[in-house]
């Protein structure tokens, strides 16, 4: 067996591919499901927190900052393990899917809040003043004048951060969520061959390369519509 055959035998063994690709595919769907749920909930919660912070109520701001700093500092894997193995001890039992979704949502929300908040702060004060001087209330000025500008400024960092956190769906493997990596490692131990891991890697590429490309497209699309 020459080296090339050994390589193919190790990473692209045809019997293993035929036997296990449906598992990897089902894992792909689970990953997509969790990822979408995380992106939607995480960005929505992050935006909501940034808006809340804009009202500058001291106690609220303090709570938000504590939450944000905590979830930005903790490795997501630690939180996943605490939620899954720790919370049942105080009577809170969450399914593994729920834990994975919830933790990644909170992490994304924490980062997204910081990014949205920076965006809100970077909108010039004159924009607020112009809006308020025409009779718009604080909330109206925020929604119609400031947020649209803030969100556009935040698209590039937000896209990067969202992709980075969404990839953490692979952490689901440690608590048995049947996502790509979980299916791939299981199949690898059953088959005694690394091919399923390679299939898993390909599944990640199939999923995230288009996301990265869409991210780049959004960045150019939302660059100012200027002449």
């Amino acid at each position: 067996m020459d080296r090339w055959e050994l390589f193919l035998e190790t990473f692209f063994k045809s019997e293993v591919i035929t036997r296990y690709w449906p598992e990897i595919l089902s894992g792909l769907w689970v990953t997509i499901e969790v990822a979408l749920a995380v992106v939607v909930a995480g960005l929505a919660l992050g935006l909501a927190l940034a808006v809340l912070r804009a009202y500058r109520i001291l106690a609220v701001t303090a709570l938000i900052v504590v939450f944000v700093d905590m979830f930005r500092a903790l490795p997501p894997l630690v939180v996943v393990l605490i939620f899954y193995f720790g919370l049942p001890n105080i009577g809170i039992v969450l399914s593994n899917w729920t834990v994975l979704w919830l933790v990644l949502t909170l992490v994304l929300a924490a980062f997204a809040e910081e990014i949205f908040w920076a965006g809100i702060l970077s909108v010039p004060k004159g924009q607020w003043e112009a809006a308020r001087s025409t009779g718009l209330g604080f909330g109206q000025a925020l929604v119609w004048v400031v947020l649209p500008q803030a969100v556009r400024l935040t698209i590039p960092p937000l896209t990067n951060r969202t992709i980075a956190i969404t990839k953490n769906t692979a952490l689901g493997t440690v608590i048995g969520v049947g996502e790509i990596l979980n299916q791939a490692t299981t199949a690898t131990s059953f088959s005694g061959n690394a091919t399923p891991l390679m299939l898993g890697a390909i599944a990640y590429l199939l999923l995230f390369v288009p996301v990265v490309m869409v991210g780049r497209w959004i960045e150019t699309r939302f660059a100012w519509e200027r002449a």
Partner: peptide
């Protein structure tokens, strides 16, 4: 105050148009 501000138009040095 918002109703009161409708009685007064204000024009700023830096225009402050909404760019979007």
């Amino acid at each position: 105050l918002n109703a009161m501000r409708l009685r007064m138009g204000m024009v700023f040095q830096s225009f402050n148009l909404y760019p979007h």
